[in-house]
Structures are given as C-alpha cells and as structure tokens.
C-alpha cells in the first residue's frame, strides 16, 4: 500500500476549555474516498476547519504529502491542494456563477498564466461537469439550493485539489438528487482526486467510501471499511446511545 496522502496525528482542539477534538488520528489514502461519520457535535466540521486552516490546533499534526501543514493559513493550504465545500453553503452570493468558479482557477493553486480564452473554456467545462451549464451569468444568489451545492463543488474543483473536503454535500437532497450527486462524487474520484467526506446520509457514505472514520465526542472510536465499521459495537452504541 502506498503512503497516505494526508495523515492527521493526535490532533487536539480546545475551545475555551471545551475539547472539540481529542487526539484524533487517521490517514487518508491517495485516490480513495474516505468518509467521516459521527453524531451531531462529534467535531466533524471542526476537523475540516482545522485541516483547511481556519484555526490552529492546540496539539497534534497534519501531514499532507511530505509536508507538515499544521497551523498554515487557509489560502496557503488551498494553494497546496486541499479544497473544500461548506456544510451551510457559502458561494459568493453577489457574484456570477462564472466568477465564483473563476476565483478558484485564478487563486486556488500555484500560479498558472491563464489565457483569457482557455480560462473561459475551462470554466465552461467545469460548469458543465457539475451540471450548471448555461447558468454562468446568473448571480449565485439566484440559484436554487441544489445548484448552490453544485457551484461549491465546481469552485472547489477549480483549484485543482489533490484532496477535496466535502462537508455534508448530500444531506438535504431528494433521493434523485442524492443519486446524481453520488455519481458526481464518483466521477471526481475517478479523475484521481482524493475525497474526504463528512456525511450523515448513511446510504451515501457507505456506498461511496473505501474507508470510514467514526468520530464521537471529539475522539476517533472506529476506523475501517464500511462493513467493519457498521458492525462495530462502539459505533452502534454511539449512534443508539449506550442505554443497555
């Protein structure tokens, strides 16, 4: 097995006395889809925010490729190749769909001298890939919720990430929309992009992931293939509440 693309080692985050993450360790293998599940308040989004560089962890390390990126600011993390979507979508509402994606191309990775025409074509094909063709001139605020999610995916992909963090991309979608979004995630992965996804929708996370990490009260309580995790007693207790 090849070296992991990203390793999180003993990551700890404290919020004014509250321990949001407690010595969290796991690794993400290149080219795979890794799922993160856990009850509400388990610290999943906090984990993403630390990886993305929103705040500095109180302890532990994040190793991406060969580099220790612990405590890097988020713009640097992004340019290195980690991009993300948000649990509560945050497109640039006042900007056009086209410009939302353009930001990713222009600023999201190491300097590329885009020719205007090439860039337009790239953006157009990106919009088509996520299913937003023909909507480029609309303001992001005019999009329906599903399309806002799609836009977030396109913006993240525009940065040419090596690792894509998806925060509850599927939650809240109708069954049909879920299937199409799952297909999109598969296609992204097929391009060679490693995916780390937080998801509540079990069908999606179990169906897509090569590996699942379970967080509970800020700690990793299980890690393994979907089948292993589903049968794990600690996981069952965490979800059902250890009433017995």
């Amino acid at each position: 097995m090849s070296a992991p693309l990203m390793s999180v080692r003993a990551l700890t985050v404290n919020f004014s006395g509250l321990r949001a993450l407690d010595r969290v360790s796991f690794s993400v293998n290149p080219g795979k889809i890794t799922g993160i599940i856990g009850p509400n308040g388990a610290g999943k989004t906090t984990l993403f925010n630390v990886i993305a560089g929103h705040y500095r962890p109180s302890g532990g390390q994040i190793i991406f490729g060969e580099r220790n990126i612990t405590g890097w600011k988020s713009d640097r993390v992004c340019r290195l190749g980690i991009s993300r979507t948000y649990q509560h979508v945050r497109p640039f509402l006042g900007l056009s769909v086209y410009n939302n994606v353009k930001v990713g191309f222009l600023y999201g990775h190491q300097a590329v001298n885009w020719k205007q025409k090439e860039l337009s074509q790239e953006i157009a094909s990106m919009l088509e890939f996520v299913g937003l063709e023909g909507l480029g001139e609309k303001r992001a605020e005019e999009l329906i919720p599903l399309n806002r999610k799609r836009l977030e995916v396109a913006r993240a992909l525009a940065t040419h990430p090596r690792l894509l963090l998806l925060d509850e991309l599927i939650a809240g979608l109708t069954p049909t929309e879920t299937l199409s979004m799952m297909e999109t995630i598969r296609q992204i992965n097929a391009k060679g992009i490693t995916v780390l996804m937080i998801e509540h929708v079990m069908k999606a996370v179990m169906g897509l992931s090569d590996k699942v990490v379970v967080l509970h009260h800020g700690e990793v309580i299980a890690e393994g293939s979907p089948a292993q995790v589903a049968g794990d007693q600690a996981v069952i207790d965490a979800y059902l509440g250890a009433q017995h």
């Binding site: 560089g53 929103h54 713009d75 992004c78 993300r84 006042g94 990713g104 999201g108």
Partner: peptide, 24 residues
C-alpha cells in the same frame, strides 16, 4: 481585473475568499 475579482470575493465573504487561495 483579477484584482477586482479578488476584492469582490472579500466583500462577499472574506473567510471563504481566503479558503480559496485569495491572499486577502
């Protein structure tokens, strides 16, 4: 310009702008 686009992303949501590599 590209600078103008970056400025507008800062106006819309500075934190997200930074997340997408804009050196705010």
């Amino acid at each position: 310009s590209q600078l103008g686009l970056a400025m507008k992303t800062i106006r819309e949501d500075e934190e997200v702008a930074r997340d997408f590599g804009v050196p705010v």
